[in-house]
Design a protein around this nucleic acid. Sequence first.
DNA 1: GAATATTTGCAACAATGTTGCAAATATATT
DNA 2: AATATATTTGCAACATTGTTGCAAATATTC
Lengths: 144, 144
Amino acid sequence: MTTKQHLTERIGNLLKESKLSVTETRTKILELFMKSSGALEHSDFEKLTGKSFDRVTVYRTLQTFLDKGIIHSIPTTDTSIRYALCKSECSEHDHHDHHVHFKCEECGNTICLDETDVPQIQLPKGYAAHNVEVIVSGVCKSCK
Amino acid sequence: MTTKQHLTERIGNLLKESKLSVTETRTKILELFMKSSGALEHSDFEKLTGKSFDRVTVYRTLQTFLDKGIIHSIPTTDTSIRYALCKSECSEHDHHDHHVHFKCEECGNTICLDETDVPQIQLPKGYAAHNVEVIVSGVCKSCK
DNA sequence: GAATATTTGCAACAATGTTGCAAATATATT
DNA sequence: AATATATTTGCAACATTGTTGCAAATATTC
């Protein structure tokens, strides 16, 4: 069994676990996520697949993956939204990212620092926290 | 001297300090920031001013204010970018937001928690941090 | 393999953001 | 305080990004 076949099988299982049909688009997009070192934004898919899919399909696929807890979105100060694969802790109904995101100012890559937990934040009286997002920007390992 | 006059004077000074011409658009937009309890996004300006300014002018004004360190942008997971006034610590060349941002899931408002410092983040070996953004979502004081 | 359910791609549209340029306004100069 | 200079604004035109309805294509179920 080749690596490629193995990957395809893993992706198929992931989709079935989420009760989603196994289609070419979804498989290809998940493949891109798995092969990518960092977070992807919408325009990346058109670049990476060479426009083999309709834009609308990509939008819908990403939304579906978000809904199912397969990927999570990462806040940015530019217009684009970035997405990254969730680890196993995430699920459809309990979907939080308990790790820190890092954006490199050199290469522009955004990555998940899965080992780095988000800290407790002491909020002022009267505020209740449900989720905490931390985005650190700076210079990454590779660019240093 | 009325409050309105006082505010206008403050705004004029702020603009002059940043070496910007004092124009109607800039004054009005700063006024909206000062009167607003939370962060504003681009579409708010068209709503709040009743389309008295061209969209292009608003884009350019916000960009100018960002460049000068008068406002800062707040990351979001939706497409929109939110902006809020900077406190005195910010300047054109040293522009960091050392406070936590809070987004209320009830009222949708995003506010700066000026008293709440962002924590130190212990990054993995090889990473250098320049800036840390923290966005907490939950329920705010007023909505509780 | 046929019936059913789901997904895709297209077309058409809506919203958001950008650029060049002439007219309008603000600041500097005398 | 009138003019010269510099800056800002608004318009037009365009580029990019995101959304919706619907028929055709594909995947799953029986």
